[in-house]
């Protein structure tokens, strides 16, 4: 009973921590000029292919490293290192660290899109991802 209760407590705490971090990021994106956020736009971005600048004919997208299934583990495209699931439902550490999120947005948007993501794109994506 106590075990269940404490598990529930941790779960609630992590969910609320996620909620606070994401909400704060979303409002800062709005202050940077973004409009209302849409989960379906975020999902579209997740699925969109971008040309691979290094290998003509090939494409890059989010699942190149994270895999098609957000709840499953992914694999780094060049080093092969296993990446823990990106979906917060499968990995409670996700969406709990604003600095971490921003670092990876910058790193991965540049790699996949060839440029940094706009506040609108980032907000759409987080809105999509938090439901997963």
């Amino acid at each position: 009973m106590f075990k269940k209760l404490s598990l529930l407590l941790i779960l609630t705490w992590s969910i609320s921590a996620q909620a606070a971090v994401v909400d704060e990021l979303l409002s800062s994106y709005k202050s940077e000029g973004a409009g209302n956020f849409s989960a379906s736009n975020g999902e579209a971005l997740w699925n969109k292919d971008f040309p691979d600048p290094k290998e003509p004919g090939k494409v890059r997208n989010c699942s190149t490293c994270h895999g098609k299934n957000l709840q499953a583990k992914g694999k780094h495209a060049s080093t092969g290192k296993v990446i823990d699931p990106i979906a917060p439902s499968a990995n409670k550490e996700r969406l709990t660290d604003a600095k971490f999120i921003e670092k990876w947005f910058k790193r991965n948007c540049k790699w996949v899109l060839g440029r940094e993501c706009t506040p609108q794109e980032k907000g759409d994506f987080l809105t999509f991802l938090r439901t997963k």
Partner: peptide, 8 residues
């Protein structure tokens, strides 16, 4: 960094 911007 080997094609990645580490953004550190």
């Amino acid at each position: 960094h080997f094609g990645d911007d580490l953004s550190l």
